[in-house]
Every structure is written in structure tokens, then in C-alpha cells.
Amino acid sequence: MTFPSKLKRGLFLAGALLALTTCSRGVRGPDTQTPPPPRLTPAEVARLIPSHVEDRQGWAKDVLAALEEQRVYPSVEPVCQVLAVIEQESGFQANPVVKDLPRIVRKRLDTYAEKLGVVGRKALQALLEHRAPGESRSFGARLKAVRTERDLDRLFREILKAYEEQYPAVYTAADLASELARSKGLADLNPITTAGSMQVSVRYAVEQSDEDRPEAEVREELYTRAGGVRHGTSRLLGYTAHYAQPLHRFADYNAGFYASRNAALQAQVSHLTGLPLALDGDLLLYNDEGEPRDEDSRTLKALLAFRTRHAPKVSERQVRRDARKEKQGDFEETETWRAIKQAYERSTGKTPEYSRLPEVAIRSPKMSQDRTTAWFARSVDRRFQRCLGQHRAPAK
């Protein structure tokens, strides 16, 4: 799916009073019968930000600019959605501090080196003892001192550069050993895969940026307040889904586009086929780059079983083709989607639900304990509801 990356202010102002915020984006949009909801000013947005946050006015302006870029009318609901995610993910820190960060990354490096045997351990030791040009401390000493995502990210990229330039023979051998052992390469061991105030996926931010833009440049932008909010708002509100409440959009923010919508479909397919399914919102299996794998997932097998039992006029080829649209809005226009919804309604006499919270475990080296997508969505939703209540409360 492609989202707008550069939109001129004039286009937004001209269309702001049209259907720029619809219920599909979690916000009630203006129509011909009802006047548009109030448009929030920077001062009003700043008042919704916790009082301990520094430069609330600056945060407010960046949030409004990000909504403008997505052509989302800045009423209280989308503003509070963005603010709730920022508070949940970073507590309004553009460059978040991560507890025990040096230990996390050193453990990953040690694990990688162990898989490569003696050559890996020796290479890692030599590398951490190395000093970058102009630095008095070794990489190992600097690693012990990192506290924030940006500091670790920069240091890790320096280490990788030194590894490639100073140890080319070892680097080649390590890559080969990594491939044979089916372990990740050194570049993929960087624990900073989400970054900035809204903890946006680096891969997502790179995909939404200009094709010739280096990843390092995109990473640096994510650590700025404006950049983190801009990419995060795009990830949160830059797609259309017919959710009745923002709770499911918050779940999608954590689990992936349309995870809540797809989890409901999985539950319906499971009911119709009798096959147990993990309601994780993924109909297919994906590789580390986010591309569909050739192997059939349990859900895809269930979809094919559904076709055989309930919709024989839909071909297997059509089901497979439709399933590849699961991360897109127009998946809802496919024959497979319509067949499942119709069969479920015939079977149960009930209107099939559009969405439900997906069942996904959250594991991250930056988290002290495992969580779930449902926990994340409800936590963000509590902050969202508090923000709405604060807006309704009289100003002091």
C-alpha cells in the first residue's frame, strides 16, 4: 500500500472541510447536514499533552503538521489518537531511553559470535577493542555507555562499518557461516528496528520514503520530534479501515495493517470449517522483509477448505490471489471476502463482525516482559479516552 509522503498545505486547506476525516479513519467527518467538529489550534493541542512534557507547543505543532500531511482534519479525535500513541510508546521522548540497553545488544552480539565458532568470537573481541577514527574509547567501552536508541543505532552502524572495512576476510567468512547456520547477519542484529517517539518500524519508514534515500538518513529523521511524529501518524492514520472505534486501529498499529479486520475473518473461517486458527490477523506467512512466503499458512489452508465446502464456484487460484490482498483495503471487495461473510451469516443468522482484537504476543529486546497486542491496544485506548475527557473538561 502507498501513502502520501509530500502534500502541499494549500491542498489540505482547500479540502479540509470536505470528507477528509471519515469514520473509516476513526473520526466522524463533516457532511452537508452537520457542521464539522471544531478544528483544534496548537494551544488547544498543547493543553492535551501532559504538563511535565517539555515544549508542549512544539509537540502540538508537529502533530498538527503530521495530520495535515495525511489530510486528516485536526479535530480532537485524531489528535488524541496520535497523542495517545506517543505517550504509550515513548512518554513524549523523541529519542527514548531504553533500560539495560548495553546488555541487550552485547548479548545479541555474543550469541551471533558463538554461532560462528572460534573465528566469530575472535572477530567480535577484536572489533570491540577497535577505536573509530578520532575516538579515544573502544567500541566496547562506548557500548557500555549507550542509553538511548539513537546512540546505540549510531554506534551499531559505526561497528558494522568498521567490521566491513577493517575485517573484510572475516566479514565474508561470517556471512557464509551465517548463511549455513541460518542465523541473521550482523547488520540484522541491530535491536533498533522501531524508533522515535512513536516507535515506528524502520522498515515502514524506509518504504514510505524516497527510493534513493539511504536507510541511515531515514533512521536519523525518526529520532527528530517532527520526523518521528510524521512517520508515526502516517502509520496510524494513513490507511482506510471501517473500524467503529479507534481501539482496533491501535491494535493494527502494533500488529500490522488490517490485523483487527483479518482476525475477525479468521474467527469466521474457523467457525465455518471447524479448523482451529491463531487469530493473529495474518492470513499468509511472511519473511523478515515482509514478503509473502511460498509455504501455505494454516489460515490459507483453512481458506482453501472453506472454498471446497462452502464456495466451490470460487477457484483455488482466486482464493490465493485474494489472500495476497490481506494488507489492503480492497481485500474487502474480493470474492473470497464476500463468500466468507455470506456463508457465516447463513450459518449463524448473525451479522459477521468486521473486526476484533488480534491475538498476538509482543516480544522485543527493548521490553522487560512479554505483552500482547490486546494489552497494547487497550493501554493506548485508555490514554485516548483520557485525552478526550481532558478536552471536554473546562480549561483551568
Rank of each mutant, 00 (worst) to 15 (best):
S24D: 12
D322A: 08
R356V: 05
A94K: 13
L300S: 02
R298G: 10
C80W: 02
P50Y: 05
Q369Y: 05
Q266P: 11
E215T: 04
L303H: 00
Y354N: 13
S368L: 05
G238F: 00
D280E: 07
V76G: 13
L155V: 11
Q208N: 08
A43T: 14
F3L: 12
L152D: 12
E44W: 01
L124Q: 14
D210F: 11
F3I: 13
R249T: 01
R219G: 08
Y253R: 02
V269E: 09
A126F: 12
S24K: 14
E87D: 07
G232K: 02
Y73F: 15
F250N: 03
S379G: 06
T111H: 11
R324D: 02
D31T: 08
R363P: 00
K366C: 08
P214R: 12
E114L: 14
F12I: 07
F331V: 01
L155A: 09
T193A: 10
E165C: 02
G349D: 06
A264M: 05
T148V: 00
S178I: 07
W375C: 03
H242F: 08
G232S: 01
R230Y: 13
R378L: 01
P246N: 10
S347C: 08
G228E: 04
L300I: 09
E359Y: 01
Y239I: 00
S201C: 06
G15H: 10
S315M: 08
K396A: 13
S5M: 07
V269W: 06
L189T: 11
A205E: 11
L124H: 14
R386W: 11
K107D: 13
R307D: 09
C387V: 13
L303D: 04
L20I: 08
G10W: 09
G185N: 15
I104S: 06
R383M: 02
R147I: 03
V45G: 06
R309M: 15
Q199W: 00
E291A: 13
V380M: 05
L116M: 07
D294I: 11
E114M: 12
K325R: 14
G281A: 00
L116A: 10
P352M: 03
V202N: 00
M1S: 10
A393W: 03
T299H: 03
P4Q: 11
F156E: 10
R324A: 11
N190M: 06
T111K: 15
L124G: 09
R225E: 00
Y167D: 02
Q385K: 14
R363I: 01
G274D: 05
A361I: 07
I104G: 02
R249G: 05
A263V: 04
A395N: 13
Y354R: 15
R137G: 01
K350D: 15
R39W: 06
V63N: 01
P102S: 03
D322E: 11
A255C: 07
E326W: 10
Y204L: 01
A377R: 02
N254D: 02
P352C: 05
R106S: 00
A339E: 14
P352G: 05
F306C: 15
R320D: 04
E207M: 09
R386E: 15
Y204V: 03
R103E: 12
L101D: 04
